[in-house]
Simulated assay, not measured.
Amino acid sequence: MFGFSKRWDPHLKHCFATGGSSGAGLAFAKLLAQNGAYVFIVSRDQAKLNKALEELEAARQNSQQVFRAYSFSVNTEAGSAAAIKAASKPFDGRCPDAFSLCAGASRPGFFVEQTEESLRTGMEQTYYAQAFTALVSPMRHRKPWSSKASRLKGKIVFCSSTLGYFSMVGHSTYSPEKFAIRGLAETLQSEFMLYGIEVHVAFPGTIYSPGYEEENRVKPKVTLKIEETDEGATPEVVAKIILDGVRSGKFHITVDFIGNVFRSSTAGSTERNSYALDWVHGLIGYIALPIWRNSVDSTVLKHREEHEVYLRERGLLS
C-alpha cells in the first residue's frame, strides 16, 4: 500500500491459468510468457487451446520456458484436481507457483426467465470454476511458516468484475457469482496468510472479447441501453493492468476510473491501494454514484411497457 514491498517477478515461475484459451485469460497468460514464466493454460475447448498455445510460443523469451495446454472442466473438484496434477507433472509433481483464475461465462437475462438449471449453471461456470481450483490446489496444504527457509510465497489471482461491486437489471446469473468470488477472495486473503500464499482479486469492467460479443446477443435491451456509454478495454490492456497490480502486491485490482470509484466506495475493511487516491475516489462515489443510480432506475422504469409486451410474448405474463 505504501510502495515499499518488493515487486513480484514471474520470471521462471510455474504459472497455471484457467480460462486461458481466449480473452483476458489468454492475454494474461501471454504477458506471463513475455515475462519469462512457465505457462500452463486450461479451458474446455481443445481447438482454442491449440491456437492459444501457438500464441504463447510466439511470446517465448528463452529456451527454458515450458508451455502446455490442457482441456479440463474446472467447475468440479475432480476436474480441477486433474488439471493441476497434469500441470504439475513436468515439474516432478511440484505445485505451480501462481494461479490465475479467469474461467467464467455470462448469460444475461431477466431473473423471471431463469430456471433452477440456469442458476446452477451460472454458479458452476463462474464461481465454482474458480473456487474449486483454489480448493484443490496443493498450495493450500503448505504448512504454516515454521522457519525462514520455508517462506516461499505463492500467488492466487481471482477474477471478479466491476459487477462484483454493484449490479443491475439483466445480470442475475452473473453478478451474484462475481460477488461470491469477492467474498471468497476476502476470506482466503486472510486465511492463506498462514501458508505464505498471496491472494489478489481483479475487478475488470467491459472487456472487448468474443465472450462479450456473445453475451450482447442475448442481453436485454434495457441493459444494453444502460451500458451504451460504458467504455470498455481490450483484453491486452486489462491483462497488463492486472499483472501490474499483482506485481505491486495490490489485493483489489481495478482497471479503470469507474472501477476505482466503486472499489473505494465499497471497500469495507479491505486494505487500501492508496489512502490519498482512495479518499478522492470515495468522495467522488459518495456524490456521483447516487445520481448515476437514479438515472439507471429511471431508464429501467421507462422500459416497463416494453417489458410487459416482452413478457406476454413469452407467456410469462397472463
Rank of each mutant, 00 (worst) to 15 (best):
M1C: 09
F4A: 08
K6W: 00
R7F: 01
H11M: 08
K13M: 12
H14I: 15
A17M: 08
S22M: 11
G23L: 07
L26K: 05
L26S: 04
F28N: 07
A37V: 07
A37D: 09
A47G: 12
L49F: 10
L49E: 09
K51D: 15
E55S: 09
L56K: 10
A58F: 06
A59C: 15
R60K: 15
R60G: 03
R60P: 01
Y70E: 02
S73R: 05
K85P: 03
A87R: 00
A87E: 03
A87D: 05
K89S: 11
P90S: 08
F91N: 04
D92N: 15
S100D: 05
L101P: 14
G104R: 04
A105I: 08
A105V: 12
S106D: 14
R107L: 11
G109Y: 05
E113G: 03
Q114L: 07
T115A: 05
Y128V: 00
A129H: 03
A131D: 10
W145M: 12
S146M: 07
R151D: 12
G154C: 10
G154W: 02
I156C: 07
T162L: 13
G164P: 03
V169C: 08
G170K: 11
H171N: 13
T173R: 06
K178I: 12
A180W: 10
L184P: 06
L184G: 09
M193P: 00
V201S: 02
A202F: 06
E214W: 00
N216P: 02
R217E: 10
P220Q: 11
K221M: 06
T223Q: 12
E227M: 13
E228P: 00
D230G: 00
E231C: 07
A233S: 14
T234Y: 02
P235E: 06
V246K: 05
R247Q: 15
F251Q: 07
I258S: 04
G259F: 06
F262E: 02
S264D: 06
S264L: 08
T266R: 14
A267M: 14
T270C: 12
S274V: 06
W279Q: 08
Y286Q: 10
L289K: 03
W292T: 10
T299Y: 04
R304K: 13
R304C: 05
E305G: 00
E305T: 13
E306S: 14
H307N: 09
Y310N: 08
E313S: 13
R314K: 15
R314I: 11
S318T: 12
